[in-house]
């Protein structure tokens, strides 16, 4: 088997640097209000995008299970506010749907 270590190091840097640089560079800088506002919205916009991306890129036979799992978890956490319970319910529901459709 060939060794992939140079590739692994390169990929490691390619993932680490975008994670590290803003943390260090912005940590004690005065940030403009507009920019702060922009940064404040990032968790909401990125989560929405990751969720919608998960749905539109899911295999067509997994789409219903994916949407159902996301929906039940969202609704439960909206009503009860319990993260672990919501996620487990999402997993269980999508598991049931996948098994029914096989």
């Amino acid at each position: 088997m060939r060794t992939y270590i140079p590739l692994i190091i390169g990929m490691g840097l390619a993932t680490y640097l975008p994670r590290l640089i803003p943390l260090v560079a912005l940590s004690d800088r005065k940030i403009d209000d507009r920019v702060r506002e922009f940064l404040y919205y990032i968790p909401y916009t990125s989560l929405s995008i990751l969720i919608i991306r998960g749905i539109i890129t899911a295999d067509s036979n997994m789409k219903i299970a994916t949407i159902a799992g996301i929906a039940i978890a969202g609704i439960l956490s909206y009503k009860k506010g319990n993260l672990v319970l919501s996620v487990l319910s999402g997993i269980l529901l999508s598991f049931l749907i996948i098994n029914m459709s096989i």
């Binding site: 909401y44 989560l47 929405s48 990751l50 969720i51 998960g54 749905i55 997994m62 299970a65 994916t66 799992g69 996301i70 929906a71 039940i72 978890a73 969202g74 609704i75 439960l76 956490s77 909206y78 506010g81 993260l83 919501s86 996620v87 487990l88 319910s89 999402g90 997993i91 269980l92 999508s94 598991f95 996948i98 098994n99 096989i102």
Partner: peptide, 24 residues
Amino acid sequence: APLQTSLSIGLYAMFAALLFPEIN
């Protein structure tokens, strides 16, 4: 495989469980 898939859907379920209460 079905268990693997549904567990990985769990990560999206988590994103939704984090986001929805904020929408409220």
